[in-house]
Design a binder for these strands. Structure first.
Length: 419
RNA sequence: GGGGGGAUUCCCGAGUGGCUAAAGGGGGCGGACUGUAAAUCCGUUAGCUGAGCUUUCGGUGGUUCGAAUCCACCUCCCCCCA
């Protein structure tokens, strides 16, 4: 559980550390927050709605923040938003979320909890995990709108950024309540744990402000909020999206090799942001890596990919992924770490199997039509030889030591193993 | 409650009876160029192991030799007025 090196930063106030790394986007009271974080050990929370069965890179950013905070002595409260997930956050969405069944939400929550345990130390009282279903599901409507609803001005809510883009496409009353639910969470956590701050991605700004205001109005207490830059590419597109969907932290959903490759392939312009936000390398080291010129920047990308993969999947997997990538792209290194699928030797007896169905089965192409196209366009290689005939049959004799290397396009390598 | 406008292939968006598996753009995929980068250029982009066949234009039923296009009903969405 010792992810962050002691020499990660020269600063001793975690606020300065986060600032140095470019995380901080907006704060409710910059000076007071810096002061508070320097003087006191506080409790703070970040909410995560279990809308999927795994955390993705966006969540991971928030996890990293909690890791820093914990490293510097503060206590993270991980709030699983099973209750808020039943409402659905409209922030940054152009349409309403699919309604989820309670069972799905419950299932997802369990998986979230497990993943958090990998990064945050919950031993003793070093961190807290709670779930807002605990209080939100018990609310009495009438009581709630009288006690809490009266503090919210609809006029003001409607001007909030998070609702703006929905003013045209439509916003249901259900979703409109999301902000109030999240605000109530802050109030509840303040009462339960004396939680003084809420963090979140910058898209959470309005929701966080709502909570800060509510605590002040209801209890007359000052609490604080802070948002962090979203991890986006230099073009402003959210990072961590692949054509298959999000980049997941769960290795069964995104393999460590794929995960490694994603970071290995980021654009030059994004290397600095990624290194500073997703790795715990000291900033001097980050600067040194980023200053590499031309093709040399690949060294920085390798380091980035390795460090992030190590953080998420452990050193062993990171080494494997790196070895596999090196073997595939630059040759030399051992081929055993390239993504491999085992198949029965018997399948390749006699006439063997058609190449098209093989690559389709391996999920290298989404359909057989795509497989044909790939071959027609010269995008498929077997053991370094271009496949020209889509009806090519793969037989046992074509394997060397029971292995066959398939390359699709420039970047996808896959080993077939019949041993 | 009244009036108006919509729903098109991964997304946006054209298409108002056959020439439409459906323009154009985005995205994806393949190629060239490169540094496993960016930019650019070329090709490609429903499924089925080629020609051929099957499924697609919110849903259901109908008109027609023939429908994404016409008709009826239904569902959902948006806008204006209350």
């Amino acid at each position: 559980m010792n992810f962050i090196r002691d020499d990660v930063s020269k600063h001793t106030n975690v606020f300065d550390v986060l600032k140095e790394r470019g995380f901080i986007k907006q704060t409710t009271h910059e000076d007071e927050i810096r002061d508070l974080l320097g003087k006191e050990k506080i409790k703070f929370y970040i909410g995560f709605d279990p809308t999927a069965d795994s955390l993705h890179v966006g969540h991971f950013m928030q996890v990293i923040i909690m890791m820093y905070m914990q490293k510097y002595g503060h206590t993270p409260i991980v709030l699983i938003g099973s209750g808020t997930a039943m409402v659905g956050d409209p922030s940054g969405r152009s349409d309403m979320r699919q309604m989820m069944t309670n069972d799905t939400i419950f299932e997802n929550s369990r998986k979230f909890e497990k993943l958090f345990g990998k990064f945050i130390d919950f031993s003793g009282d070093k961190a807290i995990i709670d779930n807002n279903a605990d209080w939100l599901t018990k609310l009495n409507y009438l009581q709630f709108i009288r006690d809490i609803g009266r503090h919210f001005s609809v006029n003001r809510m409607l001007t909030a950024e998070c609702f703006k883009q929905r003013m045209e496409s439509g916003l249901s009353f259900l979703e409109f309540n999301y902000m109030i639910m999240q605000s109530y969470d802050f109030l509840e956590l303040y009462k339960r744990y004396n939680c003084k701050m809420q963090f979140g991605g910058d898209d959470q700004w309005s929701n966080i402000l709502g909570g800060v205001d509510l605590v002040r109005r209801e209890l007359g207490e000052q609490v604080y909020g802070m948002t962090f830059a979203l991890l986006t590419t230099s073009e402003g597109i959210k990072m961590g999206k692949t054509q298959k969907g999000a980049l997941w932290l769960d290795e069964t959903k995104t393999s460590p090799y794929e995960f490694y490759q994603y970071w290995r392939n980021v654009e030059d312009a994004d290397v600095r942001t990624c290194l500073s936000m997703l790795t715990f390398l000291p900033m001097e080291e980050v600067e040194a890596l980023v200053s590499l010129e031309g093709a040399e920047i690949n060294k920085a990308k390798e380091k980035l990919a390795f460090e992030v993969t190590k953080l998420v999947h452990g050193e062993e997997e990171a080494v494997k992924a790196q070895e596999g990538a090196k073997a595939a792209f630059s040759g030399g290194a051992s081929l055993e770490n390239i993504p491999t699928t085992k198949m029965a030797a018997a399948d390749f007896e006699g006439d063997g199997l058609g190449i098209v169905s093989i690559i389709h089965q391996l999920n290298l192409v989404p359909s057989k039509g795509e497989a044909f196209r790939t071959i027609e366009q010269g995008g498929l290689m077997i053991d370094d030889e271009k496949v020209t005939d889509a009806r090519l049959m793969i037989t046992k004799e074509m394997f060397t030591d029971g292995k066959l290397l398939i390359k699709k396009g420039k970047k996808i390598f896959h080993m077939l193993d019949i041993n």
